[in-house]
Design a protein around this nucleic acid. Structure first.
Lengths: 332, 332
DNA sequence: GTGAAAGCGCTAACAT
DNA sequence: ATGTTAGCGCTTTCAC
C-alpha cells in the first residue's frame, strides 16, 4: 500500500480510501491510485486491515462437517458457501469423521484465524468449551445435531418424526418383523431416529423385544456384514429400516449379494445418489441438505447483523420419497 | 496477549515465547504463563503474528473446485484436507461452477487472505493473470486441467488414454456405431476425452463422419434430453461413451425411461456413486480423486518447502471398471 | 532467562 | 479533498 501511495504520489490514507470505496476523494485521484494499484498488482491484505478495523470482521466462516467427501455434507457446504459468497465471505471447511478428539482442535484452528462465525456438526459429548468464545461475541450455529452445555442456534432434521414415518410406512405394507440398523449411539441423530422407530412400533402395538436392532454401525462395510448375518440367521426380518445413508448402501450390497433385494423391504434415512435408478428404486426419508445449509448460514449472518433473539432449534422437515423398495410386502 | 502477560506478571515477549514453544524460558515461568492463558481462554491471533513473522505463512491453503457438492470434487477436497491437516494448515474451499467470470474473483479473495498456496480447477481461457503472484512466490498447483499462460505444476488424469480405452472396449464388444456425449469444449478435459474417443475409432478404421457426437452438455438434464432424442431418432447407436459423471447419470435416466438399459452399451468417464448396484452395473473409466488430491497437496507443500525443480504436469492413471453396461453387445 | 522498542500493513481519529 | 499520527496483536531485534 505504501508503494501504491508513492507511485500515485498521494498519501497512504488516500489509497486506503480508494481501495475501500470511501467518499471524499476526487475522481482524478481515484484514477491515479487505481492505475498505480493495477500496475503494481496490489491486493490489500484483509487481515492486516482487520487488525485495526473497528468491526474486526475477517469475512471468514468456519464450517465443520462429517466429511467433505460425504454427499450430505457436500450439499450443506455448498448451500453455506452460496450464502456466504453473496457477502464476500470465504468458508473454511474441515472434516470431523465423527471423532470427538478432533473436534476441539479444529474449532480452535478456526478461532485462531478469527473466523466471524462457526457452523458446526459436532460429536463430542459436550460443547461447553465454546461458552467463553460465545460470550466474546462469536456466533455459533449447530447443524444436524444439537449442542450440549451451551445455548446456541441449531438446525436439524425432524429425525424422530422421519423415522416414525418410515416405520409406519413399512407397517402399513404389512410388515411386523422390521429390523433396525443404526449408527453409534453417541450421535444424537442416531438416538432420535432410533426413538422414532421404536415409537412407531409401539403405536402399532408391535412388541419391541425380539425385534432385531443393530446399533453402532459406522461404515458401509460393517452394515453389509451385519445385514448379511441378519438375513442368513434364524427368523430373518421381512423389512429393514436403515438410519443413515452409508448404512443403507451397505445394506443394499448385502441384499443384492443374497438376491433378496426384490423380496425384503428397505427404507433408508437420508437420500442416496442414484436411489431412483436402482431396481427396485430405494424408498428413503430425504433430508433437505440445501435448506439446512442455507438456514444455518442465514442464522449466522443474522447474529452477526445484531439479531439477539433467544437461541433456538430450527427443525427442517424431511420427506418420504417412494421408489419401490419400501413398498415390497412380506409376501414378495 | 497483553492481558496474559499482565496476569502472569511477565513481559509480553515471554508470553510469546511460551505460546510458540521457544527455548530459554524457565519451567516456572512456562507454568505461570500457561495458567494465565488458560484462565483467560487466550487463543493467539494467527494473522496478527503473521504480519511481522519473517516467513509470513498463514497456514492456509485455497482450493478451487467445480463444486463442493460434486462427488469428484469432494474426494479431491478430502485428500487435500488430510495432507494439510498434518501440517496444521486450514483449507478454504470454493465452487467455480465452470463459470470463467467467477474464477478471478475467487482467486483474488484467496490472495487477499494471503493463502500460502493455491490448488485450482480453472475454466477461464487463460491463467496469465496469476503470473505476478507466482513471481511473488505463491505456489499454484492445477488439478484436473492444465493452465494456459502460466508455467505451473498440474495434476491431471490421463483423459485421452482413458477415453481411448473405453472406446476400444466398446469396439471389442462388436460396436461400430458408438455415440459420444461430451461436456463443453471450453473445458480442456472435455477436448482431451473427445480426442481419445476419435483416435480409438480412427485406429479401428471406423469412419468418424456420421458418428453421433454431442458436445456442450453441462447438466444431467441436458444429457437426458439429448440421449432420448438420439435413441428415438434415425439410425440410433448401439453403444454410448459418456465423457463425464453427470452426463452419464443423465444418459442412464434416458436409457431406463426407454427400457433400453439392457440393450444399449454404455461406458462413462468418471465413476458414479452406486454404479455397481445398478442393473446392469455401470462400466466406467474411474479417476483416482484421492491420488490426485494427495499429489496436488504434496506438490504445494514441496514448493513451499523450497522445491524449485521445473514445473511439470503429473498424469494420474485412470482405470477401467467392468460392471456390465460396457459389455453389452450390439445384439443384446 | 527476560523485556523494551520498533515495525508488519492497514484503519481510526484527528488534523489541515 | 487529503495527509499525519497512533495503534491493532503480534514477532523481530537487541539490550540487559
Amino acid at each position: 500500500m505504501r508503494n501504491v501511495a508513492a507511485l500515485a504520489g498521494v498519501g497512504i490514507k488516500t489509497v486506503s480510501r480508494v481501495i475501500n470505496g470511501e467518499p471524499n476523494v476526487s475522481a482524478a485521484t481515484i484514477a491515479k491510485v487505481t492505475a498505480a494499484a493495477d500496475s503494481l498488482n496490489y491486493l490489500p491484505d484483509l487481515h492486516a486491515g482487520n487488525l485495526r478495523r473497528s468491526d474486526r470482521k475477517t469475512q471468514t466462516l468456519g464450517l465443520l462437517v462429517g466429511s467433505v467427501a460425504n454427499p450430505f455434507s457436500g450439499a450443506v457446504h455448498r448451500a453455506v458457501e452460496d450464502v456466504a459468497a453473496q457477502r464476500n465471505v470465504a468458508v473454511f471447511a474441515s472434516s470431523l469423521d465423527d471423532d470427538p478428539n478432533r473436534e476441539r482442535g479444529i474449532v480452535s484452528a478456526f478461532l485462531r484465524r478469527r473466523v466471524d462465525g462457526l457452523i458446526l456438526t459436532t460429536v463430542a459429548k459436550n460443547q461447553g468449551y465454546l461458552q467463553p468464545e460465545q460470550e466474546h461475541g462469536t456466533p455459533f450455529v449447530f447443524v444436524d445435531r444439537e449442542p450440549v452445555g451451551v445455548e446456541a442456534d441449531a438446525v436439524v432434521s425432524d429425525n424422530a418424526a422421519g423415522a416414525t414415518r418410515a416405520t409406519c410406512h413399512l407397517i402399513e405394507h404389512g410388515h411386523r418383523r422390521i429390523a433396525y440398523l443404526g449408527d453409534r449411539l453417541e450421535i444424537q441423530t442416531a438416538r432420535e431416529r432410533r426413538r422414532g422407530f421404536l415409537e412407531a412400533l409401539g403405536a402399532a402395538g408391535i412388541a419391541t423385544n425380539g425385534i432385531p436392532m443393530i446399533d453402532g454401525l459406522s461404515t458401509e462395510d460393517s452394515a453389509t456384514v451385519a445385514v448379511a448375518a441378519l438375513l442368513q440367521g434364524e427368523d430373518p426380518p421381512t423389512a429393514i429400516f436403515s438410519s443413515q445413508n452409508l448404512i443403507t448402501i451397505g445394506a443394499l450390497h448385502a441384499l443384492k449379494a443374497l438376491g433378496l433385494h426384490r423380496s425384503i423391504a428397505l427404507i433408508g434415512f437420508d437420500d442416496i445418489p442414484l436411489g431412483d435408478m436402482l431396481d427396485p428404486g430405494v424408498t428413503v426419508i430425504a433430508q433437505d441438505a440445501n435448506a439446512i445449509g442455507t438456514l444455518a448460514a442465514d442464522l449466522v449472518f443474522a447474529r452477526l447483523d445484531g439479531d439477539d433473539t433467544p437461541e433456538r432449534t430450527y427443525v427442517v422437515p424431511t420427506s418420504l420419497i417412494i421408489r419401490g423398495s419400501g413398498e415390497l410386502t412380506p409376501h414378495d
